[in-house]
Design a protein around this nucleic acid. Sequence first.
DNA 1: CTTGGAATGTCAACAAAGCTGACGTATTGT
DNA 2: ACAATACGTCAGCTTTGTTGACATTCCAAG
Lengths: 168, 168
Amino acid sequence: MSDGLQPQMGQSLLFLTDEQLRKGIEAMFFAYRGFTADPDRILADKSYGRAHHRAIHFIHRSPGTTVNNLLSILGVTKQSLNRVLRTLIEDGLVASTVGQRDKRERHLHLTPAGAVLERELSDAQRDRMRAAYRAAGPAAVAGFRQVLEAMMDEETRHHYEAMKDRPE
Amino acid sequence: MSDGLQPQMGQSLLFLTDEQLRKGIEAMFFAYRGFTADPDRILADKSYGRAHHRAIHFIHRSPGTTVNNLLSILGVTKQSLNRVLRTLIEDGLVASTVGQRDKRERHLHLTPAGAVLERELSDAQRDRMRAAYRAAGPAAVAGFRQVLEAMMDEETRHHYEAMKDRPE
DNA sequence: CTTGGAATGTCAACAAAGCTGACGTATTGT
DNA sequence: ACAATACGTCAGCTTTGTTGACATTCCAAG
């Protein structure tokens, strides 16, 4: 079952041993904690959570997006998203406007106050990412992105690539 | 505030633009979903959750570990871990034995049944990781690990490195 | 034109898993 | 003897996911 180190294995395949894979799994787990730590700290003071951060991020990213679209990007149920969205709208961070063409849809935008919080959160997250990128160097960063992209579900990767090259 | 593309910037720093960092952030978010998707599916049928998976993983990894040690690796409170651990012990997947040297400690091991579930979960997770590694290639994998390690908190990295080179 | 079904979004109730705080018990070490 | 440590537990709260029921809006078939 376990690969172990098979002497006859080509050098080029050593990175696929169970041990290497396990290290990658643990690296992913521990790194994700760091990845969310800084925004989480900021949000804790404001009675918001990670779900609010995600909503704010993708609304900023795709202004005017509908609830349904946001739903499929975030991969949660609409009831779960709705709770988060409701508090953000009540608190004046997100604006929801009825669709022109289709009045069933709601188009979502960040208000100026919402944009301020988005900035604060993404600055914090980017700072850590920038430090990691700088420490690892451009070649490592390219590999990092390649592996992450290969790790996504098919459908998820479509979402990722759809917003890949939009201008900021 | 925003880096934009500064014409005078050396080519070597282009990977540090806000846009590159944002892509990395989104890649991390989407990939983590894929990373947990397969074990989550298996666990859903068994009325266990991701928290149970994490406990099982690290008990397998460090057989005989104490509750306190597991606590600091997982970064949760003892009440939270205890809830998970209690169900695993009741269900006969984890064994808790009083310490020889220090009788206050409990040493945790997987039972044969626990080892079976661990295998099932880690096989599923490794399969995806292996596919991603294979698609990206050894150089990319090295970069992937470098960036992840640089992204961890100091204390977390110590945990990660402490169990880095243990034999399986 | 009407009407029935599909799509969009909201409300209610519940579950998983995190948290704080307080407390009890056994054991260790000063 | 006594303080500190390791563990377990009770109670109660929060965030964030779930399902089920329901209102509104749109569209297309009759």
